[in-house]
Write a protein that binds this DNA or RNA. Structure first.
Length: 911
RNA sequence: GCCCGGGUGGCGAAAUCGGCAGACGCGACGGACUUAAAAUCCGUUACCCGCAAGGGUGUGUGGGUUCAAAUCCCACCCCGGGCACCA
């Protein structure tokens, strides 16, 4: 059929490519491996296959990486471009809870649908390398990595992970001791406890976010600001629980410092630094009375002379010990909440604070509340007695849960001091023009004894030295980053391969028994409860006894019943793609060395929502594997690129409920849904806004190539852009026009001449090659397309396409629109597939200009444009310009006072 | 409040080593073809004044640097995302 039958063309070529295995990539050691090619690893953040299927917003980045991969294949690279699925997770489990359908069944169905949809885009993935994190052959190695963490400790001197066996031998040899106790003097049980406390994977009793309604514990980052669950919006309570933790904090410095090694957006690196939150400062000990003292962390030890009171978090354990039965002399009325004794007052405040920590805390905004404990501490530098308050603006989870308050240099402390009538002493001299309250800027120290006159940095150092010499504290570094809570009480995750002995001993499941498969359970409902005091129970407690209990050498062990979080599987999938069927290792040394090369993944593309968590966790695991010698690069992802989102109009009815956007009709200025007016809003395309557009529908109407081109033509890859189905016709028309330029629609004849292009068309051809090549390198696919549009438009008036244009055009277009390019290539009788054709080159001499347009400015305004030879000299240019009538009209013949020449483009005359 | 992005025609956007603002596309308008419509092809399309030639204005706002600013500097406004009494 001579007209552009995109459906037939696209289906046929996708089938051919698959049959030919044209996107299959071989590894070092394979018979067809070509070691002369340079390697390029181009990776997408793999998707979670949800039940809703893909919408046109998902594949934006995938189209970009596909184009980049195809381009570099044509430039001779050996491109690894894989795709897989992050398939453990709560949605399938919750579906199982609701319907009883096994998560495996749901997941397999979704995987199939996602694979079908992704294949329909014509992506050049090597599907032979695909896997899902739920495959036992994959999670076998996820479990193996966990055991590597379990069997390792962090050597602070060497700043790296080492096998725990090396720690044991150093302890046995007396090269180290266990927290000051010699190994030989330590009883067996204590040795075990000590070792367990040193592991990178360890168990700790930590406060967790317990969500009874979900029957599970949530990570901090999964809890909303309102103290409710991110998923489901259920109430969340904080309670202590024994949990597996991963010691990511040991890597805090390296995770910051080694950001220097990667080519990432500066914004993402900044976000990671902020998340880790390294701050240097000091611990300072404030005596209270007897043996009691309050230890605080401060980033501003230089301001200690201005510490006029202290604040501890409501949850701080010292509060009970320091609060006296009666108010001491000098207690101001506004410090007491109007209550007769300190203990009652503090209890009342704590109760109010614990309630507030949920919803009200936000509402209450900035007003400072607190209560005096009735206790005084002594400022070790001034020797003054200063009151100790309880206030909820200090958090138990950061630093030591206590602060020295320096109202002169901290605005929150200033506000509190004003509210409670506490003294304010400036210890840094603000500039004269400063009119604010707390002053945090630079300046000389004042009111600070031996620090007076020093700048902040010097004063910090001197204070720390004083503290250390006098035993009142020491310089220290703290981090916002906390260890990674790694246990989930869910079913649909990787089982943690640990056995618990009768005396609390931890025994790893031997490597040869991996994978430890998920046991079958009959019912997936967690012990959900509306009782906030309900005990958390892992779902695997429902597994059969023969799974849960293991007898070894006459000892009965209980299996760990927690599973891993969804992050686990996505922490290392990029390594498995290198060697996905390896049964002896997570990746072979040769494959790892070849594909990771010097910088790791050469281009990693995904949404900015993963800027912190996923990328930080993956970097952490990678560094552990690096330390233990399993990988050869210090960083996993050499270059990161964040693609934008597809945005779309969404519509809300009068109750604020989203209505299906595709059923909304426009009537003049108003939008109607089922006859009722709705409000138009705008946001990220997705299920929650009910504004998804299904790619299947677009393929049906316009074809795959059109959709690929449209998504790329909308704008630069890294910005978000609004979906507009109306605009798709632009790229569709481009393809139809291209078709008609090459194919006679009546006869099906190829409209290509024997002749080469000449004159302007030849120049345009070579300029187009140059421009598209540069745009491809820069991931500027929108402008690459614009150049191809221009070349296409230039062909419309010609009866036949010149042979060199015909030879080049499908190759330039093929990364962007592979199907039509392959069809034209094939119809012209070209040898082989366009997929493996070489990228066109251009003749630099042809695109060199000999004439240029010279802009003539008079007093900064453009007054004339004159065609001049590119070799024009300044005196010639001035002579020509001053003779121009348009210039004369503005110079009135006056002599130039000044001439700036950027020849041949600019001549700027000042008169 | 803090941090990170971003504000350019009716719309999506080009142009960022400081050197022609608006490439390319959508839409709109006019024309050709057609019995007609669709499709296709040709043209116009930042705004204001002007018949025209031409002139003026213009890249969120106000200043500044410069022969020259979308681009650099200062202050502010708005939109999006992230974090939040983090000491």
């Amino acid at each position: 059929m001579p007209t552009y039958d995109f459906r037939e063309i696209e289906n046929r070529w996708q089938a051919n490519w698959e049959a030919d295995g044209i996107y299959r990539v071989s590894n070092p050691g394979d018979p067809d491996f070509d070691e002369t090619k340079r390697k390029l690893y181009i990776l997408d953040m793999f998707p979670y296959p949800s039940g809703a299927g893909l919408h046109v917003g998902h594949p934006l980045g995938y189209i970009g990486t596909d184009i980049f991969s195809r381009y570099h294949r044509m430039r001779g690279a050996n491109v690894l471009h894989p795709m897989g699925f992050d398939a453990f997770g709560l949605p399938a489990e919750q579906y199982a809870v609701d319907t009883g359908v096994h998560p495996r069944v749901t997941t397999e169905k979704n995987l199939e649908n996602y694979t079908r949809q992704l294949k329909a885009f014509g992506f050049s993935y090597d599907w032979n390398r695909s896997f899902a994190t739920t495959d036992p052959e994959y999670y076998r190695w996820t479990q193996w990595i966990f055991l590597q963490l379990f069997e390792s400790w962090f050597d602070k001197e060497q700043q790296k992970a080492r096998p725990i066996a090396e720690l044991v031998s150093e302890l046995e040899d007396g090269l180290r001791d266990a927290d000051g106790v010699a190994w030989m003097n330590l009883p067996e049980d204590d040795r075990r406890t000590y070792l367990d406390s040193q592991r990178l994977a360890y168990i700790d009793e930590v406060p967790v976010n317990w969500c009874p309604a979900l029957g599970t514990v949530l990570a901090n980052e999964e809890v909303t600001a309102e103290g409710r669950s991110d998923r489901g919006d259920h109430p969340v309570y904080r309670r202590p629980l024994r949990q597996w933790m991963l010691r990511i904090t040991a890597y805090a410095d390296r995770l910051i410092d080694e950001l220097e090694l990667v080519d990432w957006p500066e914004s993402v690196r900044t976000m990671q630094r902020n998340w880790i939150g390294r701050s240097e400062g000091a611990h300072i000990v404030f005596p209270i009375k007897g043996n009691l003292h309050l230890r605080v962390f401060t980033t501003r030890p230089d301001t200690v002379f201005g510490a006029t009171y202290m604040v501890v978090a409501p949850e701080h354990p010292i509060v009970d010990e320091i609060t006296p039965p009666t108010w001491p002399d000098g207690t101001k009325p506004k410090w007491t909440l109007g209550i007769d004794d300190p203990r009652t007052a503090v209890e009342a405040y704590r109760l109010a604070a614990s309630r507030k920590s949920e919803l009200d805390r936000q509402v209450e905004d900035r007003e400072k509340t607190g209560v005096f404990t009735g206790a005084y501490a002594t400022n070790p530098l001034t020797g003054e007695r200063i009151p100790v308050f309880v206030a909820d603006y200090v958090l138990m989870g950061y630093g030591t849960g206590a602060i020295m308050a320096v109202p002169g240099q901290d605005q929150r402390d200033w506000e509190f001091a004003e509210a409670f009538d506490l003294p304010i002493v400036r210890t840094v001299q603000p500039p004269k023009e400063f009119s604010g309250e707390a002053y945090t800027g630079a300046g000389p120290a004042i009111n600070s004894g031996f620090l007076d006159g020093l700048d902040i940095e010097t004063a910090k150092e001197k204070t720390i030295r004083w503290l250390e010499i006098n035993g009142h504290g020491e310089g220290t570094v703290t981090y916002k980053l906390r260890d990674w809570l790694f246990s989930r009480q869910r079913y649909w995750g990787e089982p943690i391969p640990i056995l618990h002995g009768p005396n609390g001993e931890l025994r790893p499941v031997p490597d040869e028994e991996l994978p430890l498969r998920l046991p079958e359970v009959e019912d997936f409902r967690p012990h959900a409860s509306s009782d906030e005091n309900a005990e958390p129970t892992p779902l695997l407690a429902k597994a059969p006894d023969e799974w849960k209990f293991v007898e070894i050498d006459g000892v009965t062990y209980t299996r760990e019943l927690n599973t891993m979080p969804q992050w686990a599987g996505s922490c290392w999938y990029y390594l498995r793609f290198l060697d996905p069927r390896n049964e002896d290792a997570l990746v072979s040394k040769e494959a790892e060395k070849y594909w990771m090369g010097d910088v790791g993944v050469d281009l990693y593309v995904g949404g900015v929502e993963h800027a912190v968590l996923h990328l930080l966790y993956a970097r952490f695991w990678h560094k552990v594997l690096y330390d233990l010698g399993h990988v050869s690069t210090p960083e996993p992802f050499g270059r990161l690129f964040n693609q934008g989102y597809i945005l779309a109009d969404a519509f809300q009815d009068e109750r604020g409920i989203y209505v299906p956007a595709d059923e909304v009709v426009r009537d003049g200025d108003v939008y109607l849904y089922q006859g009722k007016p709705v409000t138009r809003v705008y946001g990220k395309m997705g299920k929650s806004l009910k504004n998804s557009v299904n790619p299947d529908d677009i393929f049906e109407e316009y074809g795959v190539d059109t959709l690929r081109l449209y998504e790329m033509f909308m704008g630069p890859l890294d910005t978000s852009r609004p979906w507009s189905t109306r605009d798709i016709v632009g790229t569709h028309r481009f393809l139809q026009r291209l078709w008609r330029n090459f194919i006679d629609e009546d006869t099906g004849e190829i409209l290509v001449s024997e002749e080469h292009a000449t004159g302007d068309l030849q120049v345009l051809l070579h300029r187009t090659i140059a421009a598209v090549t540069k745009d491809m390198d820069d991931l500027h696919f929108n402008t690459a397309l614009a150049r191809l549009f221009e070349l296409n438009n230039a062909l419309v008036a010609l009866p036949l396409v010149p042979s060199d244009v015909a030879d080049v055009f499908p190759r330039l277009l093929s990364p962007l629109a592979p199907h039509i390019s392959e069809e034209l290539w094939s119809r012209m009788g070209k040898e082989g597939s366009v997929v493996v054709a070489s990228w066109p080159t251009y003749d630099a001499d042809l695109i060199a200009e000999d004439m240029a347009t010279m802009i003539v400015q008079v007093n900064g305004k453009v007054r004339d444009r004159i065609e001049v030879p590119v070799t024009i000299t300044e005196s010639e240019a001035v002579a020509i310009a001053l003779a121009s009538e348009r210039v004369l009209a503005h110079t009135n013949g006056a002599e130039p006072r000044k001439v700036i020449a950027r020849l041949p483009n600019i001549l700027s005359i000042v008169v």
